Amino acid sequence: MIEVGALRALRSVAALGTLARAADELGFTASAVSQQIKRLERQVGLPVLAPAGRGVVLTPAGQAIVDAAPEVFQALERCAEAAQSVADGAPQGTLRVVAFSTGIRGLLAPTMPRLSKRCPDLRVEISEQDPDQALHSIDAGTADLALAHDADGLPVPLSPSLTRRLLHTDIGDVVMARTHRLAKLDRPLTSADLIGHRWVTSPPGTVCHQWFRRLFADVPEEPDVCHRVDDFSTQMSLVAGGEVLALIPRLARPPLREGLISHPLHRPPQREVHAVWRSSANASPAIQAVLAELEATAPPDAP
């Protein structure tokens, strides 16, 4: 009979392309993963991996095993959920949660005190991961629940074995000094209002930089970017000088220091934040408890 650990190792190697990367994901040494793969090959009587440059690829037999693996893991997860339901559905054990940085700050962190009081036997372990990696971790079984935002307005594609639920819509505002001349406007800002001012932005390649570029998509002039800084607290320190503006998502925004305000936009950039988990874990008391707290502790909509 194929061992579950060996099956999980093969699936991880197939997704990541090397034994070393699979070992990092699974928390083993490369040698341990190699031994698991060799045991699997002895159990099925066929090679499941073949060398390919510096990595490896699946053989036809290995591909057949990986294709069948989701059904095995889903069945095992349903067994675990059935066992937990015997305890009146009380959330317990360890729930592994992966999320992007500002999702941890703005959504997960505020839920933890209430969740601890409501579910004292549940241990929640949070790891920071970008959305693509977080979804892979859920699909691979190395995490139980993920918070992922969409990619520049496009929903992240999901494996058929995963379920998602919309938790929050994050919106960007312009942060400025109270002394800035735009602070006197009592209406949402338009693209035309923003031209001619200096900016601090997130670096190219980030979601927030894409948001920033979209603000000026319908105006002919290039925005005047003075600073490119990834940390939002640092951006706000530069804004406090009164000379630059910053576009900051509400989830990512630290508390506004004295002398700063946030101003809404006429057409604000936004992103949807979803919770994602394996469909076979729909009945998990732990996942349902965390989802309930996340929905009950939604961030305020005020700018």
Rank of each mutant, 00 (worst) to 15 (best):
H149Y: 14
Q288S: 06
G259E: 12
D152L: 10
L107E: 03
T297P: 01
S280G: 08
L26I: 04
D301F: 01
P269L: 03
R213S: 12
Q133Y: 07
G106W: 11
D218L: 08
A87M: 11
S284G: 09
N282G: 11
H136D: 13
W211E: 00
L154F: 08
V244D: 05
T29V: 07
E81V: 15
Q288C: 07
I261A: 08
P285K: 05
L189G: 13
R214E: 12
P264K: 07
V97L: 15
T201N: 04
L215G: 05
S159M: 01
A217V: 06
W199A: 03
A281K: 10
T142E: 09
L158Q: 07
F212Q: 05
L185W: 07
A296C: 02
G27W: 06
R118M: 11
E295W: 05
R267D: 14
C226L: 15
V72M: 11
Q133R: 15
L145K: 11
P285T: 02
H168V: 07
E272M: 07
G62T: 06
H180R: 04
D218S: 13
C208S: 10
D139L: 04
A298L: 11
P157D: 12
D193F: 00
P120K: 02
D121W: 00
R118S: 15
A217F: 01
A6V: 05
N282Y: 03
R228D: 02
T94W: 02
H266Y: 05
P155N: 10
R114D: 14
L135A: 08
P47A: 09
G172N: 15
Q210T: 05
K38E: 12
P300C: 02
L10Q: 10
A283F: 04
G27V: 01
R271Q: 13
P70I: 04
L10Y: 09
A23G: 08
T297E: 14
L108P: 03
R42A: 08
P120E: 12
A217P: 01
A80R: 10
F216Y: 13
W277P: 00
P220T: 04
E243I: 02
T102P: 00
R228S: 09
A75R: 14
P47R: 15
R123S: 11
A80F: 05
W199K: 03
W277E: 00
A183Q: 08
S280P: 04
A252G: 15
H266I: 01
S279G: 10
R267M: 11
H263P: 02
E222R: 15
M112P: 02
G241H: 12
R228A: 04
Q270R: 15
D231H: 10
P113M: 00
G55V: 05
V97N: 15
A148E: 08
A82E: 12
A183D: 11
L122K: 04
A90H: 07
L260D: 13
D150R: 08
V207R: 12
V44D: 10
T234Q: 13
S161G: 14
L49Y: 11
Q129I: 00
V276T: 05
P131Q: 09
A283Q: 11
F212H: 06
E125Q: 14
G196P: 07
P220N: 09
V219S: 15
E71T: 14
I195R: 14
A80S: 13
